[in-house]
Write a protein that binds this DNA or RNA. Structure first.
Length: 375
RNA sequence: GGGGAGAUACCAAAGUGGCCAACUGGGGCAGACUGUAAAUCUGCUGGGAAUUCCCUUCGUAGGUUCGAAUCCUGCUCUCCCCA
């Protein structure tokens, strides 16, 4: 399922190909987030053609609540329902249980929570989140975990990690004893936890590696801890997670975070930043980040980004995009999202090229310098 | 021509003797956003020194008062109704 292609000499960065029933994914890869079955504001056609997305995410929590598992099943699975025929990954809902903190109750059995839509009570367990994700039919599905908050004390972090590990065994058991609902294989990724404690991270990575799934994920990071802590955890975890399986760093991050993580051996990323921040007027460009709402862009008729990660970046001006965003126009959110997503995808694509050509370290250092600028 | 209402900071609009440099909304300016309950949220928005300070402001010119955006008088302007 995963083929390692090349490795950087001076760092742990590498390239590979992730093979799924819906297509092959060159890594490193960035996966746009499509929580409720849509990458907000973006048509599937643009996602594929202009942005060049290779795989997108959906979310079990949101889709289970609305439209509901039965509807997705009736539609013939998530791919058919949302008219995206490339690879997909669904998150298990563990993060939602964490972010809906006020409304949840964790037990050994699973997480009891209330719907943010109508207040109704529901339970997620390691087993039913596998069942639901079998029905949704994403190519890659995630184990149900607990994402510990930051900061959290050692005792809580350990308990939370142990619960996640127990849940993992049950999820793997259910995964193994069930068949795909649709006629192609799915892969289950377990998730490393352990907060910012090195020994817990090590222990968790060993556990996760021991279940020998087709790929492994690293969760519970970029939840408020200092970036240096995140990098330190990545180094510990990636030393243990097998090299011949893809490593997925969940929810990360800024362009700089992504480059630092690639350097440490991470292959897959997802983050809401390019879309959410884009809607709110923040652009990522090859020259640095831009707050397009700032007055200084009012008469800047130059392209959004002359590096042109997408046609949108070249064909629309900063002044026009500023006008659209400030006016609250839908098109503004769409253009900013398309540009930012294309930027992210070009970033990881360029990383891949530079790893292949043996120039990664030098290229990365130069990029980080540029990315840190605020225009 | 007669009668009535009103003029408050960029706009709209509260405030009708001290707690008012003046509620609130909009606009403007800036910031935040990391497995999306987010086209959302936060701060600032008279000037200056820049933790409890000073100065100039509520159409305009005077007056009353210890003290006025708030009370009185003149003036200017706006709006509404009836002829």
């Amino acid at each position: 399922m995963f083929v390692l292609q090349s490795s950087d000499k001076s760092t742990k960065a590498r390239t590979g190909i992730l093979k799924t029933a819906h297509g092959e994914i060159p890594t490193p890869v960035f996966m746009p987030v499509g929580t409720v079955g849509t990458v907000k504001g973006i048509m599937q056609r643009d996602l594929k053609d202009d942005i060049g997305a290779k795989i997108i995410l959906g979310n079990t929590y949101h889709l289970y609540l609305r439209p509901g598992t039965e509807i997705v099943k009736k539609a013939g699975g998530l791919h058919n329902f949302i008219s995206w025929h490339g690879p997909m990954l669904t998150d298990s809902g563990g993060f939602q249980v964490f972010s809906l903190a006020g409304n949840r109750k964790l037990t050994e059995e699973g997480a009891i929570f209330r719907s943010h839509i109508d207040g109704s009570r529901h339970i997620f367990t390691p087993e039913n989140t596998i069942d639901i994700q079998r029905i949704f039919g994403a190519d890659i599905i995630m184990a149900f975990d607990e994402c510990a908050p930051f900061p959290c004390d050692y005792k809580y972090a350990r308990k939370s990690m142990e619960l996640t590990h127990k849940w993992l065994d049950r999820a793997v058991a259910r995964f193994r004893e069930t068949e795909p609902v649709w006629d192609y294989p799915q892969y289950l990724f377990p998730i490393v936890q352990g907060s910012t404690f090195g020994d817990l991270r090590k222990q968790s990575a060993e556990k996760i590696a021991s279940v020998s799934m087709e790929g492994n994920a690293i969760g519970g990071l970029s939840v408020g801890e200092p970036e240096e802590e995140m990098y330190r955890m990545l180094e510990i975890v990636n030393d243990i997670l097998p090299d011949d399986k893809p490593r997925y760093l969940m929810g990360v991050g800024t362009p700089v975070n992504i480059l630092e993580a690639i350097e440490r051996g991470v292959d897959m990323f997802d983050c809401v930043m390019p879309t959410r921040n884009g809607r709110n007027g923040m652009l990522f460009t090859g020259q640095g980040t831009v707050n397009i709402r700032n007055r200084k862009w009012i008469d800047d008729f130059s392209p959004i980004d002359p590096d042109g990660p997408s046609s949108v970046s070249l064909n629309y001006s900063k002044a026009y995009l500023r006008h659209l965003i400030i006016s609250g126009e839908i098109l503004g959110a769409q253009l900013a999202s398309i540009h930012n997503l294309a930027f992210y995808i070009k970033l990881v694509t360029d990383a891949r090229k530079n790893i292949e050509s043996g120039n990664f370290k030098k290229w990365k250092d130069g990029m980080i310098k540029k990315l840190s600028d605020r225009l």
